[in-house]
Design a binder for these strands. Structure first.
Lengths: 237, 237
DNA sequence: ACAAAAGTGTTGTCTTTACACCCATGA
DNA sequence: TCATGGGTGTAAAGACAACACTTTTGT
């Protein structure tokens, strides 16, 4: 630290924005904050970056510690660092966001942790600028999903076509023509049909599919083009 | 600071990645670092975030101090924070990138500052992980430009159609069919034709255009679709 | 038998691509 | 007059958007 010893240093935090999907609607994972200030108020999962870890590692560690969620694909979102964003001192926060299947983790969350899913448009007041963090991440999610097939990260291992289209409808808040959407989806060769049906949501049952990971890996989907008449503005991306 | 007094704090820096375009090819702005360690080695324009400013403000201040560039549209890129990315101590750096017309600022840079433009694919060795920062920003630039018309920020106030297409060719490293590209560009209504020609680059001269800012403001361009046969993978976005 | 969700085809329109020549000018 | 870069049109192929009915099965 010889050279930089006169430079100011800062508290550096991370906050994790976890979106979830249960087959019907989008949710956001929140937790009752476990430390002061603002203890017991709803917030994102956050904590401080330690000297021996990168911010990415800090985000994974903190998410795991607070929710039990492991191996979650998280991406850097924006940095929030206005000098007065926390009243109690200067903290710069790097936000991360992820997309998961909310059903899959339901039991972990409810048994051991205080984290809870809320509908994406109906959650309690949050501390600091966490609402803004969520909105920024939502925008990023939309534009990323316009170029990359990351939305599949939100689906369980096996999923049905109706589930995918509800997911897109939820993320972009639009109505999709299932005929066109399914056709496009199938023609991408990203999906492998299983000989097995999901009977939970209908009497007829919907076939399960799994991702063809080889193709998925670096394929870009431009589903945005195939949604019914709208412009990207409408979707807020 | 009552609550957080036991938390570790970190040196927080910003680094600015300034892409430039001179009508022909893409460049990157670099500077001979003015402080230890690594003084006099080529680097991005960087410095430390001060207690009374946001990282965004720090980036603008530092860019101005080191290059004289003012009022530049900069966006947050990635955060670099591996514990050992600088040998001399733990520094987490938030990177910012911007796009400017390199000709417009040429005189400022050469007269007062030590900053210098280099071709985007041929610049000297850089300190720390600055090469990785540039590559990440390049990728971000490409994907952003796929959804938003930010590339126009790179053009001078008045520009010609051939300039725009060279810009896209430079950013994506592709060859563009000018007939299709121009047609699409014009049909977007984003451009207003002037009665004035640029005669610098050809004998015939190319008409100048200006941006129709009202439309530009929130319009999304999907020019990517109009470039010749390629897939988004090829472009590395 | 009926309610509820899954699944399936066709057509018209628009967008994209491919392709080659003439124009204006300065040297 | 010629060399240089600017500008323009058309046709074929492919993608998109709009549209409604049949299938399956649990109750």
């Amino acid at each position: 630290m010889e050279f930089y010893k006169d430079e100011p240093s800062t508290l550096l935090a991370v906050d994790c924005i976890i979106f979830g999907f249960d087959g019907e609607s989008l949710q956001i994972l929140l937790i009752k904050r476990g430390f002061e200030p603002e203890i017991n108020n709803w917030s994102l999962m956050g904590g401080f970056v330690q000297p021996d870890e990168s911010p990415d590692e800090a985000a994974s560690r903190i998410l795991y510690k607070l929710t039990g969620l492991n191996d979650v694909y998280m991406e850097q979102s924006a940095v929030f660092g206005k000098p007065n964003r926390e009243k109690h001192g200067r903290v710069v926060s790097i936000t991360y966001f992820a997309l998961i299947d909310s059903k899959e983790y339901q039991h972990i969350l409810s048994e051991e942790f205080k984290a809870k899913w809320f509908p994406i448009d109906d959650y309690p007041p949050l501390i600091f600028d966490h609402v803004e963090m969520i909105n920024t991440a939502k925008r990023l999610l939309r534009s990323k999903a316009a170029l990359y097939p990351i939305l599949f990260e939100l689906l369980p291992e096996k999923f049905t076509l109706p589930q995918i289209s509800s997911l897109y409808e939820a993320v972009y808040d639009i109505v999709i023509d299932k005929r066109n959407f399914n056709r496009k989806l199938l023609s991408s060769n990203l999906l492998i049909k299983l000989n097995e049906k999901d009977k939970e949501n209908s009497k007829k049952g919907a076939f399960y599919y799994v991702l063809n990971k080889d193709i998925y890996k670096d394929q870009i989907m431009s589903f945005l083009r195939y949604l019914p008449s709208w412009s990207a503005q409408d979707m807020g991306i």
